[in-house]
Amino acid sequence: MIEVKDLKKTYAGRGSDTVVQALRGVSFEIQNGGALSFIGESGCGKTTVGRILTGLETPTAGTILWNGQDVYKMKAKDKKEVFRKVQLIHQDPYQALNPARTIEQALVDPLKVMAKKKGHDGSWIESRVTELLTLVGLDPATVMYKYPHMLSGGQRQRVVIARALTVEPEVLVADEAVSMIDVSLRLGILKLLRDLRQNLNISLLFITHDVAAARYVGTNGEIYVIYKGLVAEKATTDDIILRPKHPYSQALLSAVPVLKGIEVPGPERFIPVKEMDQNDQTDAGCLFAPRCPFAQDVCKAERPQLTGQGHDFACHFPVERHVVATQVEA
């Protein structure tokens, strides 16, 4: 459905001559009804990908194909229609909803546009509001006339998802959709996203730093590990989690807290990476080399290319599990 080739995005830095390379050349595909997860720490560029796909940002370079057609060579009307089909689920449900409007009002406006497009009347809009709220697990009679501040965080996020569904999208971009939700409510939102993908055949781009969440919603999907605007590793969800090859992927997985004595998949030992230097402007060699405990001279001189057969990684010394001294205990 969507094919992205060599996507790049550069922002002007604080200084007059400095630039920030948010994306340095990312390529991926989203299949019809498929799931793709982008994981990485804050600032790696994964949110920028989501904003570009939803039309909120314009790439500096690269190509986005929608069913084989270049989006940025389309007529304005056709381009607008493509971006209507790709909807964003915001990270912060507290700021995503207008506090002065009821939940019904938040859903009615986009539905008016759809009703006009399809030739439906007001009764269709009313029934559609009820249908959407029910679909996302809310009781329409209870929440329809309430304001956002009267709902819990989980309920608000469900409303945000319902609003994204009003324009009948084909792709949902979930940007850290559960990071600001109470831990006890996160599973319900993740299950909702997974059910929507399966029942409505909606493709899902799931942006997160939570490996466990990516695994839950990305059944039969792929995971892309992003570092400083580049793909460090990509493979099926289970391959990344059970057999990570890049030290950065292993570090992300080994940092997931687990109860001592509980057997979990993934790296068995903690990967001790250095803290990120926010002032580091290094652009030569492997971008992860300054933090990697296994870096050699070649890593600092030559940037590794993404290679592999189905399980791709950009590392000069990929191994199944690096052996280090520190054992995980949590």
Rank of each mutant, 00 (worst) to 15 (best):
V167K: 03
G40F: 00
R163M: 02
D239S: 13
W66R: 12
S179P: 06
N32T: 15
V323Y: 00
V143R: 06
F313P: 00
D109C: 02
E3S: 14
L7D: 10
V129G: 05
P247W: 07
G33I: 11
V136C: 05
I202A: 10
V231N: 08
P244A: 09
I189R: 10
V256G: 02
A232Q: 10
Q281K: 12
A301H: 10
R215C: 08
H90A: 05
F313M: 11
T18R: 15
A100P: 00
R303C: 12
A212Y: 11
L53R: 13
T219V: 15
M276N: 02
N67C: 05
P99D: 02
E263Y: 00
P110V: 11
N98P: 04
P148S: 02
D182A: 14
A213K: 07
G34D: 05
V324N: 04
Q95F: 11
A35G: 13
R303I: 02
E104Q: 05
G229I: 04
D238H: 08
Q31M: 13
K79Q: 15
A251L: 11
Y147T: 05
I226E: 03
A12T: 14
K73R: 14
M144C: 11
A76E: 14
Q157K: 01
A301E: 13
E168G: 01
Y145E: 12
V298C: 00
A141Y: 04
Y248F: 12
V225D: 06
R215K: 13
K118R: 13
A289P: 04
L230E: 10
R321K: 11
D239E: 15
Y94P: 06
H120L: 05
Q278T: 10
Q105N: 09
F38H: 05
T48I: 07
V108Q: 05
A12L: 15
P318Y: 09
L287E: 06
K191L: 12
S37L: 06
I223E: 09
I52L: 11
N201C: 08
P265D: 03
W66N: 13
A177C: 07
V328Q: 15
G68E: 10
G218W: 08
L185Q: 14
C44F: 01
S16V: 06
P318D: 02
Q309W: 06
V211E: 11
T63R: 14
I202W: 07
H322Q: 07
T10I: 15
I223K: 03
I226D: 06
A232T: 09
E170C: 08
G33M: 13
G119D: 03
I125S: 02
R243G: 03
V108C: 02
L88A: 06
N98R: 13
A141F: 04
R128Q: 10
T60G: 03
D277V: 01
F206E: 03
R243A: 09
P244W: 10
L56G: 01
P93R: 05
D312Q: 14
Q309P: 02
P293D: 08
K260V: 00
Q69W: 04
H209L: 05
